[in-house]
Design a protein around this nucleic acid. Structure first.
Lengths: 136, 136
DNA sequence: AATAATGTAACATATAAAGTTACATAAGTA
DNA sequence: TACTTATGTAACTTTATATGTTACATTATT
């Protein structure tokens, strides 16, 4: 599976917005990310839908934060991106009615959920300003 | 990204092998998994390389366990499959020399590693016989 | 020698993330 | 008012990766 790098990218963007006085345009941000303005709008649009950033159209418009980075957690941003599951593994969809398969899938799903819950809890403890200060 | 379901599949296979007196052929296993014998050989071959199963060629050949399921952990099997990373998220490769990007990536990588370590430790505690007994 | 198994290379398909094109809409500004 | 510079979004293309398929060599039993 091609891994999802959107979290990494939006954090990069949020860090820049946090350091900027003025709104930044999709083009500026796209240049930073070595990508396309449309990709920026598409991805950042999810954060806007959840209220973490706002946009202004027209001249001197662009993207800006709605609150300081200290008021956003990694968990919130992750969820805003859709939270499609952090674990890169999946369980097979059950084709037949094999009892052993059902049993394996049930158990594995439970382990995955346990792991996911653990990570999400950790994400919830990390505010973006703290994240950017990490040195380890 | 299409998620990796190999762990789920080999556990299904291992559970059957643990319950079977005789070796099971790739074709039998493939039927169980609703796939192709070659897929079975390819994936199970990784477990053989690590010594968890063995194969016998020719008539009455096939796949069998080299040790009881109580002597295999989820962690061992996961690692035998290549351990390409459990977290379905990645960090952008650094194109430019943006200090903020480097900082974000370093911090995020550290969080991902922390999470990964946590899960792997949990996987190490779960033997396959225990996994199959889980009811939750 | 025939049969039934694995081993493996090479290629095809499916899915999801990311990239691209095109154009509509909105808001400043000359 | 017309122009310019932004975002919004649909539709399509590209790319990466897991999975599936075909073909054939090798090995072991009968």
């Amino acid at each position: 599976m091609r891994k999802d790098s959107r979290l990494s990218r939006v954090l990069h963007v949020l860090a820049h917005l946090g350091a900027s006085e003025n709104p930044m345009t999709s083009s500026q941000l796209a240049r930073m990310l070595c990508t396309n303005p449309v990709v920026v709008r598409r991805t950042m649009g999810l954060l806007r839908d959840s209220g973490y950033v706002q946009t202004v159209q027209g001249r001197h418009g662009g993207w800006s934060l709605t609150r300081p980075l200290s008021d956003m957690t990694l968990l919130e941003i992750h969820k805003a991106l859709g939270d499609t599951g952090l674990i890169g593994l999946s369980v097979t969809s059950e084709h037949g009615n094999c009892f052993i398969e059902k049993s394996v899938n049930l158990a594995l799903t439970s382990v995955f959920n346990e792991a996911e819950t653990l990570i999400l809890a950790r994400f919830g403890e990390i505010s973006l300003d703290k994240l950017l200060q990490r040195r380890d």
